[in-house]
Design a protein around this nucleic acid. Sequence first.
DNA 1: ATCGGGGAAGACAGATCGGTCTAGGCTTGT
DNA 2: ACAAGCCTAGACCGATCTGTCTTCCCCGAT
Lengths: 196, 196
Amino acid sequence: MPSKVATAKPSARERLLAAADDLFYREGVQSVGIDRIVQQAGVAKASLYNLFGSKEELVQAYLDARHANTREQVERALTRFRTPRERLLGVFDAQGQLFTEPDFNGCAHMTASAEAQPGSPTQCAADRYRQWVRTMFTDLAREAGVADAEGLARQLHLLYDGAGVSARMDHDPSAATTARAAAAALFDVAVSEQVR
Amino acid sequence: MPSKVATAKPSARERLLAAADDLFYREGVQSVGIDRIVQQAGVAKASLYNLFGSKEELVQAYLDARHANTREQVERALTRFRTPRERLLGVFDAQGQLFTEPDFNGCAHMTASAEAQPGSPTQCAADRYRQWVRTMFTDLAREAGVADAEGLARQLHLLYDGAGVSARMDHDPSAATTARAAAAALFDVAVSEQVR
DNA sequence: ATCGGGGAAGACAGATCGGTCTAGGCTTGT
DNA sequence: ACAAGCCTAGACCGATCTGTCTTCCCCGAT
């Protein structure tokens, strides 16, 4: 039976996903061929097609893994904040953490979507990711007592996307700080308006 | 001599740029091969390489043409506004115009950059475009009397990028309206803070 | 009428693409 | 010991990639 200690060799599936995550994220989906992935993973090409069926499904698995990972990191980061306002703005703190990772290269769903055709599994994965972000902002705004929670969530989503773009294209991790400050201002405006 | 009346056939260079603009923008740079471009342009492959030298330089010319076109449209739109505040927010009105064009598919520099390697001519073209946007926002903020013009410009640039992303990925042209409202709030906050 | 040059058409090259298939080895449970 | 199943290595397929080269034709100027 396969040992589960730390020194155990990862399964073929795990090695493939690790290689796909590294290469797809760094160089883009279209630029990376199947041959390079199986070579880096140390896996036979036939195993890849047995496990995933096609390159497109491997891309989808890569994006879903990224989604799950981001979700986990953000949700864990939010547990550190107490007030609803701090939790709402904490999303941008979590984003800032991601921006400072050494191999950060922007939002994987955004770059993958830029190379995909409409209706493809890649676009669907990106849609799921965006829906999660949108719902999270809406829930946090509602918990903070914002009347037009969906309206504020739309604004914050713009800042969230814009920060991801700027961090990658301008090589500027401080975009998260800028976004957080703007989000704080928009939140305070939204709250003060409903007092009136 | 070649006639210059409207019925004259566009030059090989113009037809190549038109085909590149259509195909690159709609399907992405990596997905479109040279063969399809020369076929759609009705131009010999040798002519493309005589005129542009390589696919990469054709991509650069395509992005530079997009940049010039966007710049022209935005600057023309801004002449309709009178007060500095209206001119600053007018950028998002101009953006909303672009979003409603039937074949809108996001910011060309963003999608091309997602497929390019660091340091490539594509990234350089994207950098030039971003620098122009940033400078424009900074100048407009300064003309509106904002003390921290660069800080506000960074915030508005986030909204500008985020709106472009949302309009493409969510198929939601109203992202420009959302961005405009958020920009107005951030502008008013920036102005009211310096009064204190 | 002749000449010259830009462009069209497309063969060609070498590499790489996604995907399939065969053959053989290693591990595992019985 | 043996059989069943995964996995590896890599040949192979047809299509497509960027880029080069040859051939021919058409058009305009002398």
